[in-house]
Structures are given as C-alpha cells and as structure tokens.
Design a protein around this nucleic acid. Sequence first.
DNA 1: CGAACGACCTGCAGGC
DNA 2: TGCCTGCAGGTCGTTC
Length: 270
Amino acid sequence: MPELPEVETVRRGLVPYLKHQVIKRVIIREHRLRWPIPPTLATILPHQQVQEINRRGKYLLFQCTEGYLLIHLGMSGSLRVLPARATVQKHDHLDIVFTPQICLRYNDPRRFGCVLWTTDILNHPLLNSLGPEPLTAELTGKYLYQLAQRRQTAVKNYIMDSHVVVGVGNIYANETLFLAGIHPATIAHEISRKRYQRLVEKIQQVLTVAIEMGGTTLRDFTNSEGGPGNFKSWLKVYDRVGEPCVQCGSTIQLMKIGQRASYFCPQCQR
DNA sequence: CGAACGACCTGCAGGC
DNA sequence: TGCCTGCAGGTCGTTC
C-alpha cells in the first residue's frame, strides 16, 4: 500500500492526536506479522509518553520515554485513531490506547508489516543500512550516478532499492522515470550523470506534490482519519496501460521488471 | 559484492 | 453462483 508520501501522510495525521500523550494500555490481537509483535510491548509501553513521531524511509518511529516503537505498514497496513471502544474489525491486530477517546489501531490484512521495539535506533538492523532520504540534500545526481557504476540491474530496480534511496516504491518509480524521460529497463550504469540529476529533481518533485495531496489511493490506502489520498488523478503512467501518453499520445506500455508491473511511454522514455 | 527469485499473506477482479 | 488464476502499494533472506 504505502510508499513514502502515504507514510508521511499518516505520520502528519497522527502527530496532533498522539504527540505528548501517555500510553495507557496495549492490546495485541494477532502477533504474527512479518516478524512477531514482541509480547513484552504490552508491559513495556504503558506509562510511556510519545515524545515525537518521525519517519525513516517507510518506517514510522514513535519516540517514547524509554525507546522507540518502530512500525512498517508493509503492503496493506494502516493506522487509525479511534475511540478505544470502537468496534474491532477484521485484521485489527493491535491497539495502543491512550485515553478513552484516543486509541491507535493497526490493521493489516496481508500482515507484511511489522511492529517492533528498540532502544537503539541508530544501530537497528532494519534502519542502519538504508539509503538517504529522497527529500534531503543527501540525495543528489552525483550520488546516484556514482553508486550506479557497479550496478547491472534495470534503473527501476535500482531506484526502488531502499539501500540506494528510501521511499521510492513501484508507483513513484514509474512516475519519476516517465517525467525524467528514462526507460525503466535501462541498465543503471548506462545512464549519464546529467540524467541522474534530472531523475533526482523528478523524484523530489513527485514525492513533494504527492505528500501535499495526501498520497495516492488506488484501492485501499487511507490516511489516519480513514480518508483517501488525492494523488491518483495526478499519475501519468502508473495503472494506465493502453491509455494515451499525456505528453505525446503514444500508447502506454506495460512490462515486468524485477517481477513488478512497469508502465512507460515508448516514445518519451528512452 | 551484486543480481535474481522465492517467501511471507489476504483480498479482489476477471475468466470460465 | 462458484472455482481457479493472477495480481496487488514491500522487502527480507537465500542462493548463485
């Protein structure tokens, strides 16, 4: 479900409700996520205050009094703030209750997400080898170009690798390559530094606009208040196979790259 | 080291 | 209506 704009939309939605709130209790209904929810969460978390809610790539980091709650939404996860007594739905795996009116509820049909606890955020194995944040000065054309010199894989796989740059998932990889005029199957090391510079500009532009519009709702993404994102109508190629290219009128093509659906304009992307 | 691929799950759309 | 297949926003672990 969520790429960086969707996770950031969720984060921004949660902050006004949860920042500075104290956790009262934790209800684990289903611990079998990608990794098991640690059963100790139920005893560790109560009485701790949520001090900050940050994001690293697609991970949400809840900075608490004594450590960090680390949440990834996987493909189908969602977080909502509800009254604690709200009816429990299918796949509501976890509640973090703050007050009778404020309960953070984690729902994840496919259970590809995770909810973990750590006191050492800097050395956590899921975080310490991630690439730079795309919306910071750390991501540059020079960086992508230099790192690509040893990469034989398709550029689309390359930019979707979270150890290269975080937050660029399948939707936004397709979109940014279209805007940069780069064919998604191009071998990463065959792309010039100048074109990587243009790609970085498009990555930053697309992610920024998508965040402003509250993310992309294709089927089931909802923000923390249960509403959809508004970025779908902005998509130029994703999920538009057979439709005319908005730039040149050619027919949008679909091919599999690295097992993932890849949409592109054969005329505009070379 | 890098690349390819299977694995983890449920839900849904489409074909018959 | 029901069954079957394939596909879906992620990414880790294994193997070569």
